[in-house]
Every structure is written in structure tokens, then in C-alpha cells.
């Protein structure tokens, strides 16, 4: 809504000033009156990012981001109902990055937990071996 106005205004500046001014005015009004389509793609992307995060048992690890993600998706839908499509799109995109971050952090924490566990059992194994060898630990 911001960008189209600018573009048309710039293009029009060369010719008849009155006409251009009128056109700008009309377009600006029209822009406020017409409702742009809802950000369907962004909403879907957010939904699938959340699903992905949920399947990865993110709730156990990075629940703050996932909670924010869900809240923003809900807010985005509300914005769509209120015909605030631009805000809806921002919220949907933000919902998606929250969910993606939640997922990435959960994966990181899980990967670390696996490594820590492996390290721990390796340490145990080694100390047992040292013990049974009678070597000082």
C-alpha cells in the first residue's frame, strides 16, 4: 500500500500536474478502500513450520519460541479477519521464523544431549577400564 503510491506518484510527475495530483489522490483513496488479498502463502508457511517444530518435540526444548510462533500465527489470522493484510503478513512471517528457530534450537539441544550422553558413557567406559587395569585414574 505504501510502495504502489510512491511508484505511481513518481511516474506521474513528468506530465500534467493537475491530472497527476488527481490521480494520486484517487489512487491513495482507492488503496485505502480496496482490501488486498490475505497473505495465504505466508500463513501456510508459518503453519507448516509450526507443525514441523511440533513433530520435533520442540515443546520440550524451545517452548518460548514456539509459543511466540503460535501467538503470532493467531494474531496474523485475527489481522486477516480485521482486513489488516500487511500486518497479517508480517505476523505470519514472524510466526514462521519463530517456529524455525524453535526447531533449529531443539535440534541443537538434542544433538548436544546425544553427544553429551556418548561422551559420558565413553568416560565411564574408560574409567572402568582404568579401574580394572588397576591404573591410577
Amino acid at each position: 500500500m505504501f510502495r504502489p503510491v510512491q511508484a505511481i506518484a513518481k511516474r506521474g510527475i513528468g506530465g500534467a500536474p493537475l491530472l497527476v495530483a488527481a490521480a494520486v489522490a484517487v489512487v491513495s483513496l482507492g488503496a485505502c478502500a480496496t482490501v488486498p488479498p490475505p497473505p495465504t502463502q505466508a500463513l501456510q508457511a508459518a503453519e507448516s513450520a509450526i507443525t514441523n517444530a511440533e513433530q520435533s518435540r520442540v515443546a520440550d526444548y524451545a517452548s518460548a519460541e514456539l509459543t511466540q510462533s503460535r501467538e503470532k500465527l493467531r494474531a496474523a489470522r485475527t489481522a486477516v479477519q480485521n482486513q489488516q493484510m500487511r500486518e497479517a503478513e508480517f505476523l505470519a512471517i514472524e510466526s514462521r521464523v519463530h517456529a524455525e528457530l524453535a526447531y533449529a534450537q531443539a535440534e541443537e539441544i538434542k544433538a548436544k544431549a546425544v553427544n553429551d550422553e556418548m561422551q559420558r558413557s565413553l568416560d565411564t567406559l574408560r574409567s572402568e577400564m582404568n579401574r580394572s587395569r588397576g591404573a591410577p585414574q
Partner: peptide, 27 residues
């Protein structure tokens, strides 16, 4: 907000992959 999160995502992904690489050596 998006930029900040994307940086965090990039770090988390990189870190996860590093853990995976280390896991190989660990195992």
C-alpha cells in the same frame, strides 16, 4: 526481528551440524 531470528537459526543449524560431525568421532 526476522533478521535477528535468521541469524539465530543459522547458528543453531551450524551448531547442530558441528555436533553431528563430533558424534562421528565420538562414536
Amino acid at each position: 526481528l526476522v533478521a535477528d531470528h535468521k541469524v539465530d537459526i543459522a547458528r543453531a543449524r551450524a551448531q547442530s551440524r558441528l555436533y553431528q560431525d563430533q558424534r562421528q568421532a565420538l562414536s
